[in-house]
């Protein structure tokens, strides 16, 4: 059975003061970008808790994109100091459990409509390459999951050694 082409679901948290404005500008300027992103407007990228990102993956997102103001330009002065700490930490943690590279943070100011389009396009492309989130794949086959497709022998040995 030939599956339909994979269209990733990407959840995006955009800061009200910059990235959301960039998205707006991109729209007004009629710039084309992939429709896979579902944006959520937040007052500051620092309000995006690791919980929100994890909840997004749990609920079936294939990727999560966070957009905030450039460092130094935060509407709340230091908000994005927190954002980068949290997201960098989470990126490493997700990588460790095998969900790496599906979370991305970018600073995009409200004037950078071109950059916005470029980031969304590149990230969507990247998630397309990565394929559907393993969580959604695994949850579909959950009952037999523990048994299906045991990993290749070499890996098992690598795990022991």
């Amino acid at each position: 059975m030939k599956a339909e082409p994979f269209e990733p679901k990407i959840l995006a948290f955009f800061c009200n003061w910059c990235t959301y404005g960039a998205a707006d500008l991109a729209g007004v300027s009629r710039l084309q970008y992939p429709p896979n992103v579902r944006p959520i407007r937040v007052m500051c990228s620092a309000t995006v808790s690791p919980h929100h990102v994890l909840r997004a993956f749990q609920s079936g997102a294939d990727g999560v994109l966070v957009g905030g103001c450039h460092v130094g330009d935060c509407h709340y002065i230091y908000g994005n100091y927190m954002t980068i700490k949290r997201i960098r930490f989470l990126q490493e943690l997700l990588e460790f459990v095998g969900l790496g590279e599906r979370l991305h943070l970018e600073w995009i100011s409200s004037a950078e409509a071109q950059k916005f389009v470029q980031v969304v396009t590149e990230f969507t492309l990247k998630i397309k390459e990565l394929g559907p989130s393993p969580l959604t794949v695994l949850s579909k086959g959950l009952p037999a999951m523990a048994l299906s497709s045991p990993p290749p022998r070499e890996n098992a040995r690598a795990a022991v050694g």
Binding site: F96, V97, G98, L99, G100, P134, L135, L138, M145, A146, S149, P151, N155, A158, A159
Partner: peptide, 12 residues
């Protein structure tokens, strides 16, 4: 371990 294997093992 490669990523897919890692996620499968953790989820188990």
């Amino acid at each position: 371990l490669d990523g897919d294997d890692r996620v499968r093992r953790w989820m188990y």
